[in-house]
Amino acid sequence: MLPEFNLLTPQTLAEALDMLAESAPDAVPLAGGTNLIVDLRDRRQCPAVLVNVAELAELRGIRQENGHVVMGGGTTIAEMLNDPLIAQHAPVLQDAARIFANPLVRHRATVAGNLVYGSPAANTPPPLLVLDAEVELASQAGVRRVPLDDFLVGVRETACRPAELLTAVRWPTPAQHSAAAFRKVGLRKSDAIAVLNVAVRVTQRADGVCEQTRIALGSVAPRVIRARAAEESLLGQPLTETAIAEAARLAAEATRCISDIRGSADYRRRVTEVLVRRLLTQVAGEVK
């Protein structure tokens, strides 16, 4: 049985923010519940108040705006997986959505929930990081935007403040000549917490020289991280086999893995190198 709590159902976003403020810090938002309800059941979280934002229309919707793609925080993983704008502008997110938990969970889990939970094994942060995403955090005090890279802090720790709601994620519409990819390693082919996961995005000039690289690594540190040294090593260079191999090596060096029941630290670090190499090779081939 779940512990006792009060459940408030606001009709608008403004109402939700008021409710969160009134009961802060003992109130948490509830959307898909796929993490929260499990935590409640296991008594890992026991908030006095839940604010049910699952049906708030203001948190849904995916649109283009001012050269950005804007996705409502309440977008479910299933919606993200089937959305034509995402398919067009950020298919790497669909790569992650496709192997996110399982189809039943995908119909409830939300992007905001996945980000705010702060698990370093989460599937949406790596692709969003390589897309240079920022999150929109709303509260009674107003709205602030925080780059995702600053939003993720540590294990189960984000920059989300009490009484704040992650209302949207936005990223610059990727250039035509950029390609991204995501890959996760788990202990089975569905419904498996990541042993590690990797996303990369590269933007290349017509002559093949790399203008911009992003490499995000999950489950290899207390939070999803960018492999900055690896990224920098590729700037201004064509994506040759040697350059890619060096970047992969640097990416593996950036990891701070631990060993747990899902894998050893050594394994995670080694396979980081493999995945980064493979994904960079893949996207290098895809960019026209």
Binding site: A121, G154, A221, T255, R256, C257, I258, A265, D266, R270
Partner: peptide, 16 residues
């Protein structure tokens, strides 16, 4: 295998 010494653990010992 690359030794465990080459890999740091987290300061707070927390799990991924």
């Amino acid at each position: 295998a690359v030794g465990a010494a080459a890999c740091e653990t987290d300061d707070d010992g927390s799990e991924a």
